[in-house]
Every structure is written in C-alpha cells, then in structure tokens.
C-alpha cells in the first residue's frame, strides 16, 4: 500500500493507505476526526470542507495521496484550546445551525471566505460564496447573519488568534 505523510491540525500523520482513500475517509476513519462529514456523492453539499494549506477544499474530492506534504485543518483544529474561533462563536450567537450536520463545512467555508474577501461581508457576497454548501434546516438566513458577524469578530480577535490565522 502506498504511504502518505501530511499534517492534520498541526500533528504529523503517516499512514499506509489504499490509494482510493479520499481525504475525508482518512480524516474520519483513520484519524477518527468525524467532525468532517459526508452528505452527498457528487461534491455538492460542502459538509466535508476542510482547509488544505490554508484554502478551503472539499475533502470528499481529494485523494489522500494528492494531499501528500500538505497541512490540513479540520473543524476540530479551529478552536485555540478551549477558546472558540470567532466564527464558531458567531454561529452559536446567531443560531446559524440546527441539526449541525452541515455546520463544520459551513464554518470552514466561512473562515476561508473571510480570508479571501475580508471582514466586511455583505449579504449578497456571503450568499454567492455559499454556492458550494447546502443546508436543509436553516433556510440560510441565520447562516448568512452568522458569517457576517463572525467576519467582523475575526477582525477584532485577539492577537494570538490572528497570528494563528
């Protein structure tokens, strides 16, 4: 079996894997990081979004072997110790989740969105940027609110957090 080496949430990972292993399978099955989820088989729902070298990717559409040498961040790696990421806090404060299944992907997408689009996100931009994330519970209304609030909060987040970004 081929081997792979990468970093997940700051921890080095070395594994012998079936070449078919998708990144999401490595995370969920090998590493038991089950916060990254699978909701479809056509790369559309976005429940599996993680960051690869700081950019959002759909981990259901990346072979683990393609991720050789990369640094992966999952939802489990977003909080700094016990301190929630401002985007996580914003989702709670604005009721941006109901069943929670799409939430990891939404939060990872939202953090990536802020990195690319800045801290002043209008409603239209957020909705456009969510094209690859499906939610069936919230009607998106409060997700959009959460992301706008989270984006603002990330700007004024503590220096430790901003250094980590």
């Amino acid at each position: 079996m081929p081997t792979v080496s990468l970093t997940v949430n700051g921890n080095p990972v070395h594994a012998d894997i079936d070449p078919r292993t998708l990144l999401v399978q490595l995370l969920r099955e090998n590493l038991r990081l089950t916060g990254t989820r699978v909701g479809c088989d056509t790369s559309q729902c976005g429940s599996c979004v993680v960051h690869m070298d700081g950019k959002a990717v759909k981990s259901c559409t990346v072979l683990t072997l393609q991720a050789e040498g990369t640094a992966i961040t999952t939802i489990e790696g977003l909080a700094l110790g016990e301190t929630l990421h401002p985007m996580q806090q914003a989702f709670r404060d604005n009721h941006g989740l109901q069943c929670g299944f799409c939430t990891s992907g939404m939060i990872m997408t939202a953090v990536d969105m802020v990195r690319r689009k800045g801290h002043a996100l209008d409603d239209h931009t957020i909705r456009r940027e969510l094209e690859g994330n499906l939610c069936r519970c919230t009607g998106y209304h409060n997700i959009v609110k959460s992301i706008a609030a989270g984006a603002r909060a990330m700007e004024s987040a503590d220096p430790l957090r901003r250094a980590a970004e």
Binding site: G35, T74, E76, R92, T103
Partner: peptide, 8 residues
C-alpha cells in the same frame, strides 16, 4: 456541533 463533536 460547532466544534465538530456531534455524534451521528
């Protein structure tokens, strides 16, 4: 849920 610790 926001920390990825839900258990489905």
């Amino acid at each position: 849920f926001i920390t990825g610790r839900g258990r489905y």
